[in-house]
Design a protein around this nucleic acid. Structure first.
Length: 568
RNA sequence: CGGGACGUGGCGCAGCUCGGUAGCGCACCUGCUUUGGGAGCAGGGGGUCGGGAGUUCAAAUCUCCCCGUCCCGACCA
């Protein structure tokens, strides 16, 4: 393509709104424009990248035998009501009413729709099946942000596997895992598979593919020694055992004005945070519940949610706390509490000599023996792992890495197929629900993650596989006839050799052309100018290194074709 | 949803405190010069100042209401 004919609106300044590097550069480079919060237009350059990402995903899905569909984006409420997610999805689902008054939703994922189609599978002999689509999803995100990283409308590849049993699901899950590893390799994204929470999807297990980046929104716990990696929503660690204080008797003591773990730790007769119980009053689907963790530990909400299966989970208001426990936050405890559900973190199991609030302002208990004094209903892993704790597998210190969630694969099981009636006959003639898996990759987010991972001070540095153009032929001066004819010839030859090449034939200054080529991140630049053309040469500059070498006009095409093909 | 900031040409900003009918840089158009790292000079086009209501002779500026955008947190497959 000839740059002079293209719409590539590059900007010298990034919009003031943009924070993330990918956001700034994709806007500055003329790849995207915002329409409103969470909704972006893909400009021609942006669409080229988006399509290349999608093509790689498509190729790898096809390679594992997946079949492509295209499903409606607008769904009747009934199918979501049937699966129970009309309520579960809450405000995150865009809903509208049609002229007949029928409730309708914009699809945020397609388990229901694909499962509905799968009701037409009637025999185990037709299994397994892998179905997928690349479709626009709509999610009313509470806070869209960071350009393409978190939006309300985006293309996602979602695939679904259908099997007769768990073994089949495991095989398809593994197949997807491997396909995802290949996809991220081809996208040059350093994605690592990590253990993840399944959240609202339900199911027995899930793996996220995480790309380390400060622009990310998830924290991953990682062990450099053995490779253990898990989302903080799921991660565990080994704790060094605590020597309990020897306080055999349960005793109340006055603590005027003491409202925090830290102050109780300092006060005379108090207790170090490690010897305290932190009592959090949570409302789980309307039920008042106490969540207990060690004083120096942090409650992870997702862990609590995963353990209980609650949909709506929030901290109690101070009024609710007072009503149910008789004291304000800062003086709360579970000693003697009988009517409420009490979920305690495993780190408290077997502990004694502890201090905790007495459910009366300005009073605490000490000498608390958890087994003796607290009616724990359930034990669960509730605490959030922090950096430096010991790896649960090998004991080495853990690190925490901020990441972008680029892909997520789930073992769903039979929850959708059972309620939506996707059942088949097995070899014994018995009716069995399909065992399902669900697998997603955000196309635009992968594109943003690549931009986030591959850029420098001058702009984007796209990997060849997804670059909008693989090479640009920059004619330094359109007034120099020798340069123009040499540039045109190289351009034509590269095109005929199947290279995605851009010809910068604009009547602009060299500096502008170089700066723009670097900003939009074209991997290879061939500079054709009077300085070298007279010698029968051009300059060759890979974007990543910036190193320029002189190459003969008659060999540049061969050299470039070889390099591009090697990269791809 | 809580906290904070902001909304003035395509992008970045000033003007608002102290009302007098909009300005700067980049970009754009024309001409001349220039031409290997975001050119110079001259001339020019483009803005219901987010929207509505109000106060006033007069509102970008003051008052009220609404809308939108960004950041932090909450939340989130």
């Amino acid at each position: 393509m000839r740059w002079s004919n293209l719409f590539i609106p590059t900007l010298r300044d990034a919009p003031a709104d943009a924070e993330a590097a990918s956001h700034k550069l994709l806007v500055r480079g003329g790849f995207i424009r915002q329409l409103h919060a969470g909704h972006y237009s893909l400009l021609p350059l942006g669409l080229r990248v988006h399509q290349k990402v999608a093509d790689i995903v498509r190729a790898e899905m096809d390679a594992i035998g997946a079949q492509e569909f295209l499903l409606p984006a607008m769904h009747p409420a009934s199918i979501w009501q049937k699966s129970g997610r009309w309520e579960v999805m809450g405000d995150e689902m865009f809903r509208l009413v049609d002229r007949k008054g029928a409730d309708t939703a914009l699809g945020m994922t397609h388990e229901e729709i694909f499962t509905d189609l799968a009701t037409e599978i009637t025999s185990y002999k037709s299994l397994p099946q892998i179905w997928y689509q690349i479709q626009t999803k709509f999610r009313d995100e509470p806070r869209p942000k960071s350009g393409l990283l978190r939006v309300r409308e985006f293309a996602m590849k979602d695939s679904y596997s259908f099997d007769i049993d768990e073994a089949g699901l495991d095989a398809n899950f593994a197949r997807h895992h491997d396909a995802y590893v290949r996809i991220f390799q081809r996208l040059s994204l350093p994605a690592m598979p990590v253990e993840a929470s399944s959240g609202a999807m339900g199911g027995s297990g899930s793996t996220e593919f995480m790309v380390p980046s400060p622009a990310g929104e998830d924290d991953v716990v990682r062990c450099g020694a053995c490779g253990y990696a898990a989302n903080v929503e799921r991660a565990t660690s080994q704790l060094t055992p605590v020597d309990d204080r020897d306080i055999p008797e349960l005793a109340r003591f006055p603590t005027p004005g003491i409202r925090t773990i830290a102050t109780l730790a300092k006060v005379e007769g108090g207790a170090g945070a490690i010897h305290q119980i932190k009592t959090m009053v949570m409302i789980l689907d309307g039920e008042v519940t106490l969540a207990l963790v060690r004083g120096d530990h942090q409650l992870n909400l997702q862990k609590l949610q995963d353990h209980t299966g609650a949909i709506d989970i929030r901290p109690a208001t101070p009024d609710e706390t007072l009503e149910h426990l008789g004291a304000h936050p800062g003086s709360l405890g579970a000693v003697g509490v009988e009517k409420l559900r009490i979920i305690a973190d495993l780190a408290l199991e077997g502990r004694s000599g502890l201090a905790t609030g007495a459910n009366e302002d300005d009073w605490h208990w000490t000498g608390v023996d958890v087994a003796r004094d607290i009616g724990v209903t359930e034990w669960a892993d509730l605490r959030e792992v922090t950096a430096g704790e010991a790896c649960p597998r090998c004991g080495a210190p853990l690190e925490i890495v901020r990441c972008i969630e680029a892909g997520h694969i789930f073992k769903l099981g039979t929850s959708y197929s059972a309620v939506l009636g996707a059942e088949v006959l097995d070899p014994d003639g018995e009716t069995r629900p399909l065992v399902m898996g669900s697998y997603g990759i955000g196309i635009g987010r992968a594109m943003a993650a690549a931009a986030e991972t591959h850029h420098d001070d001058n702009g984007l540095v796209w990997p060849v596989s997804i670059a909008p153009y693989e090479a640009v032929v920059t004619i330094v001066s359109m007034k120099d006839e020798a340069s123009v004819s040499a540039g045109e010839a190289i351009y034509a030859e590269l095109r005929s050799r199947g290279i995605d090449v851009l010809l910068d034939d604009r009547d602009a200054r060299a500096g502008v052309k170089f700066a723009d080529a670097e900003l939009i991140g074209v991997p290879y630049r061939v500079t054709v100018g009077p300085r070298t053309v007279a010698d029968g040469e051009v300059e060759f500059t890979p974007r990543a290194s910036g190193d320029t070498t002189r190459v003969g006009i008659d060999s540049i095409v061969e050299q470039l074709v070889a390099i591009v093909n090697e990269q791809d």
